[in-house]
């Protein structure tokens, strides 16, 4: 009887976790795109983040916002993933966890601009990229500070500078206004 209850409870947690993943899949995927160059790497990173979130689930005690906890882990995994890119062996047998609809509802111009933005973000130094990704994900300075370990003051200064850098990159790529 106890065993049945435990099994149910475990299955329930797995279902809840998948729900959490579904609710945040776009956030995680946007972050994956900032740290990977190919579709395969993106999927691998998404999978790795999902696994680490699952493993770290007991460490979430509701003291921080779930998004803060999620970004902290996801960014940590993404940074490690980008360090290990050269050493990583290609995944031979992998069942895809995520499928992205390639056709955006926007026009071609918007699609090009999105790709341009992703290129500019990918070109940022590591710390700047992390800060900017979190900023674009609408995290507050306090959250960014908690996730990255930078002080709020430093986050403010960095964001101000990175925004200029990013706008410059977008203008340079396009040869005009953003």
């Amino acid at each position: 009887m106890t065993q049945t209850t435990d099994t149910k409870s475990t299955t329930g947690r797995e279902t809840e976790f998948v729900q959490l993943l579904n609710d945040n899949k776009a956030r995680i995927m946007r972050l994956c795109k900032a740290y990977t160059a190919s579709r395969e790497d993106r999927e691998d990173l998404f999978q790795e983040i999902a696994v680490q979130l699952w493993k770290a689930l007991p460490t979430y005690r509701g003291e921080a916002q779930i998004s803060t906890w999620l970004y902290r882990i996801a960014l940590n995994v993404a940074l490690r993933f980008s360090y290990d890119t050269k050493r990583r062996k290609p995944t031979s047998e992998r069942i895809s966890w995520i499928e992205e609809t390639t056709s955006h509802p926007e026009d071609d111009h918007t699609r090009e601009r999105i790709e341009q933005l992703q290129r500019c973000i990918a070109a940022l130094p590591e710390v700047d990229r992390s800060v900017m990704v979190l900023y674009l994900e609408e995290c507050s300075y306090k959250e960014i500070s908690e996730i990255t370990g930078l002080t709020e003051t430093n986050v403010g200064v960095k964001i101000s500078r990175i925004k200029d850098k990013l706008l410059g990159c977008m203008r340079k790529d396009e040869g005009g206004a953003v």
């Binding site: 579904n22 946007r30 795109k33 966890w97 999105i114 706008l167």
Partner: peptide, 28 residues
């Protein structure tokens, strides 16, 4: 920058992604 924020948010949305829930549950 508001335009950049909008582009970022639109780059991937929940609607454009489909998770293979069964594969995820089986793996974890």
């Amino acid at each position: 920058f508001a335009e950049i924020s909008r582009l970022w948010q639109n780059s991937t949305t929940n609607d454009s992604l489909t998770l293979n829930n069964e594969a995820i549950i089986a793996h974890i």
